[in-house]
Design a protein around this nucleic acid. Structure first.
Lengths: 185, 185
DNA sequence: GCAAGATTGGACCAAATGGTCTAGTCTTTT
DNA sequence: AAAAGACTAGACCATTTGGTCCAATCTTGC
């Protein structure tokens, strides 16, 4: 008899990503996590020998991959960077609304709130740079000079991150939608 | 014999603000906090009957007041909004370096990571709006139309918040310094 | 069909968590 | 100097935390 199909491991990662994002890493207890994922403790420590902190890294990766997909969906068909950025922000706003303003920004939440200690910090740093470079690559592909692409990518990520946080406080995605117009007038 | 002069209550607030910002609300244990502040438990629950969550609100207020002072210092002597924003970002970058990149952004950390439940959320929301309005007021004072002032203030706070987070990940305040030039080209 | 490994289930644990409570000590007022 | 209230000190508590461990149960290759 197997569980609602996604493997135990996957369920573990998905619920971890979800709960960490909604309540924060430290505010999420293992028992809460396990009962939400319908997974017993033994399985957690089988799949993730280092327990919670290990899971945090997996969840971060999982979320980063998701985020990159959204980025690609927005930028691949775009005629220029500005258009891509606009689409991305709208997509994110939609996602934000779907989550009912309850979840923290995928980037900041999963990467910057986690177990203490270098391992996680290093991983988060690397993941974040990967994200930015990926975005910058879209920029150069769309004709921007390397430096400009890097700057714009950085600015966009910074703004999304900040806007999401504040949007959450306000429980409104408006700020997210208004972002591109204000950033690239 | 009295303690290093600031009252027990003040020491409590200051260390709470400090630790919450550095490690997060949930990651900071009461015992850690109390021993850092050199305050016994009894005193905490005397001054803050609701304990940790109560303290979180006080710490948020304390930090917000500090932040407003920095804002005022930057904007009061400024000839226009752009200049004020530039000075503010540089001041924050300096502060960031002083803290050795270890502390989260004052705005996001103290307002958006705290006890669950409406009381704190509501208070955080109000405090945040107060901050933005205060900044916008500088804008109008410096000659900006109300709508523009509001928008610029919002954008600036969003960007500072995002930039600080990422600056922290990178352990470099450069992004914070580069911000004004990129936001208001 | 059986042996070996992968996976699960959950009892169990030490440590830490936030919080309560009361006895004592200062400080202030009269 | 006595009484009243503010404040401190810390022992104590139930609960929860993340983590260990091992017996039982599935898979899988032979």
């Amino acid at each position: 008899m197997n569980s609602p199909l996604p493997t135990t491991r996957d369920r573990l990662i998905a619920t971890a990503a979800h709960l960490f994002r909604r309540n924060g890493y430290h505010a999420t207890g293992l028992s809460e996590l396990l009962s939400a994922a319908q997974v017993p403790k033994g399985s957690l420590y089988h799949h993730f020998p280092d327990g919670k902190s290990d899971l945090a890294i997996a969840a971060a990766d999982w979320t980063a991959a998701q985020f990159i997909r959204v980025m690609d969906d927005a930028f691949t068909p775009a005629p220029d960077f500005r258009q891509g950025a606009t689409t991305l922000c709208f997509k994110l706003a939609k996602l934000f609304d779907l989550l009912e303003a309850a979840d923290a920004c995928p980037i900041s939440a999963l990467l910057f709130d986690g177990p203490e200690g270098e391992p996680f910090r290093t991983h988060a740093d690397a993941t974040f740079n990967r994200l930015t470079r990926h975005l910058a690559a879209h920029g150069t592909r769309l004709g921007l000079p390397v430096q400009t692409a890097t700057d714009q990518a950085e600015l966009l990520v910074v703004a999304i991150q900040g806007a999401w946080t504040i949007a959450r406080a306000r429980r409104s995605s408006d700020l997210l939608r208004a972002l591109p117009a204000r950033l690239f007038p």
